[in-house]
């Protein structure tokens, strides 16, 4: 939650609305974050200017700089916000099931549905984010990292789970995001939902081996 700056606290409520400043600023921030993801997805990170962002969000330059230091800080916040929402959706779907392979399938299905619904932002989140510089690249890795605990529940489910490499969850997550990125680069975002069985196999194989993974994937088609 952004705090009002010192020296501005004593100003009377501005304009017609008379809303507390924090509420206004919070609302403006959300609009700005939403506009940032939309505009950067459209134009690319490099060519996007602060003016594009303020215009897209319908806020003033002054307000922009009250909220963020520069374009990069704004983009990173927008990215984190989008990742937060996506992770929450995935976790909710994941938790509707009991057995780990079913949980994984539900989570992956939700992820694919969310990405297919907004191909431009999906591409930004998975592919073009890398072009926004080293800080953004680390944010992307951190986002993938947030999903690894879900993958690692496979360790409790798998018969020999304890003896598996410590990096199994990272690798399974890497396979999933890598296969998704391949589709996005090839401009096949609309077909993402059909990737479900490949992603499920890529997730399960790291913990269960190919035969059990293929059996679980096959359950779906019955």
């Amino acid at each position: 939650m952004p705090q009002p700056r010192q020296g501005e606290r004593w100003k009377p409520p501005r304009g017609r609305h008379g809303l507390p400043r924090e509420v206004v600023q919070q609302y403006q921030r959300e609009r700005l974050l939403e506009a940032t993801m939309r505009i950067v997805a459209e134009k690319g990170y490099g060519p996007t200017t602060v003016t594009d962002l303020t215009r897209g969000a319908g806020i003033s330059r002054t307000t922009f700089y009250e909220l963020f230091e520069d374009k990069e800080a704004c983009f990173l916040a927008a990215y984190d916000d989008a990742v937060d929402k996506l992770v929450r959706r995935i976790v909710v779907a994941y938790e509707t099931e009991e057995r780990w392979p079913d949980r994984a399938r539900a989570g992956l299905r939700e992820l694919l549905a969310a990405l297919a619904a907004d191909p431009a932002q999906a591409r930004l989140a998975f592919v073009d984010v890398a072009a926004a510089g080293p800080a953004a690249q680390r944010r992307y890795r951190a986002a993938v990292q947030r999903l690894t605990p879900l993958f690692d529940e496979g360790r409790d489910f798998a018969p020999g789970g304890r003896g598996l490499p410590a990096n199994a969850s990272r690798m399974a997550a890497g396979a999933v995001v890598g296969l998704i990125a391949d589709e996005l680069i090839a401009d096949r975002a609309d077909q993402l939902p059909s990737l479900l069985s490949d992603l499920l196999f890529a997730t399960l194989v790291a913990y269960l081996g190919p035969d059990a993974a293929a059996r679980e994937v096959g359950e779906e088609s019955r």
């Binding site: 890795r141 396979a175 190919p210 994937v217």
Partner: peptide, 24 residues
């Protein structure tokens, strides 16, 4: 035949994630 044709690509992506993570 039960193994998807993307299995090799997925395995490489898994290795890539690990390598790039280390580099970063």
């Amino acid at each position: 035949e039960a193994i998807p044709s993307s299995a090799g690509r997925g395995a490489l992506a898994a290795a890539e994630q690990l390598i790039v993570g280390q580099i970063l």
